[in-house]
Design a protein around this nucleic acid. Structure first.
Lengths: 219, 219
DNA sequence: TGTGTTCGTTAGAAGTTATAACTGGCAGCT
DNA sequence: AGCTGCCAGTTATAACTTCTAACGAACACA
């Protein structure tokens, strides 16, 4: 994914093994969630014995952090790839949902329950702002007749005064509000859907998601 | 909380110890999250040794399930208590936020990342529908001029056709949509806020929450 | 060909959940 | 009151987990 090419053969082998470890880690996470990820089990699958993995990752947390980083980057890539085709906000919303449904546990790794003591490393926050940047671009380019009407004037005012994120992006406050609401509303639907809170309600989450997308694009 | 009164002194003692176990469990969860909950540590705090706890809870999962159930009931109680005072939708939103901020890990226990294999027991789904019932009541009693305007006609249509939740509650489809959007939008904001995804953005989550509340109450 | 880094091994410490078997005491019935 | 039986809590143990330490072997490089 990132460190594939390397100069010395040792480094190349090292990167290769790190990737294989991550591959099996993702399989475990997809099957039973991040909390059930076991280094021992990964080692057994690979065919080495236990402590060998500590040559590649200092500890379990470092491996998980690496996976979180990969997940984040995967979302950022999906977002940017879609935006590069001139996608509007609605298509971005579809891209987000596809990414989430493709691997629910990957979604939860990024947006799920945080571990109390855990501090996200600098690079993940950098990728997060990268994602918001793409989103802001699409919000700024929203249809003029929609862009004129703000989703919430009071929120616009608050953001115009206090926001410190993506400061290089000069954009109308109404676009900031739109990006923020895009993020939180769609996350709300996806999070409840993936957690299974809609099961048994006779509701197609896609319909709810579509309704939210409509509210965000055509005010 | 529930099983305090009992007939025989043995049962009373038993219920008392179960409560003490839960009390320490909540402290641990508030401090380090549910995944870090350790039966051994609880036993040490209480002053008994290890396996004694298995007299009271068959295993770790049963204890956690009990805590989830208590958390659910606590939210339902908070909701119903507020609704009993004739609270409108906005006040219900405030009650939800207060409940969430009072103990973030308790919120995550209910609405956070689910364990893949886990099936919610029958009673929790019953409590969940109890919560939705209170919410539906408030949505049905929303201001007439607001109630007339639907938040999303297409979603109304879908729900009128397919919904199977709270079937005893006969209410306009627009109220169903409103309840659903109330739930998912506010959860979106709270979930991101409690997970710390707004930190460093120079944004007061309360403002975003208020904006969503406005959108839900005054269309 | 020698040298040193690094990889993988086994051994083991300190945890965890959970079960089995034993003891002591309390409850309730007669 | 006394006997009986259930039940709480104990220790021992198994099977896990993460992670450290010490050793041997293999490989890259000079």
């Amino acid at each position: 994914m990132a460190e594939s090419d390397a100069r010395t053969p040792r480094e190349r082998y090292r990167a290769q093994v790190r990737e294989e470890i991550k591959k099996h880690a993702w399989e475990q996470i997809a099957a039973a969630g991040a909390s059930a990820l076991s280094l021992n089990a990964i080692a057994k699958q690979i065919g080495v014995s236990g402590p060998a993995l500590y040559r590649y990752y200092a500890n379990r947390d470092e491996l998980i952090t690496e996976l979180v980083k990969d997940a984040y980057r995967s979302l950022a890539d999906a977002f940017r790839a879609r935006a590069a085709t001139g996608a509007d906000l609605a298509e971005l919303a579809r891209a987000l949902r596809e990414w989430a449904l493709a691997d629910p546990q990957r979604y939860f790794l990024v947006y799920g329950t945080p571990v109390p003591g855990y501090r996200a490393p600098e690079d993940t926050t950098a990728i997060a702002s990268e994602i918001m940047d793409v989103l802001l671009g699409a919000c700024a380019a929203v249809a003029p007749e929609a862009a004129a009407a703000s989703l919430d004037d009071q929120l616009d005012g608050h953001l115009a005064e206090h926001r410190t994120w993506a400061p290089e992006h000069r954009v109308a406050p109404s676009a900031l509000s739109r990006a923020l609401l895009f993020w939180s509303r769609l996350h709300g639907v996806l999070s409840l859907e993936l957690a299974g809170h809609f099961t048994g309600m006779g509701l197609d989450p896609a319909e709810l998601y579509a309704a939210e997308t409509r509210a965000l694009t055509a005010p």
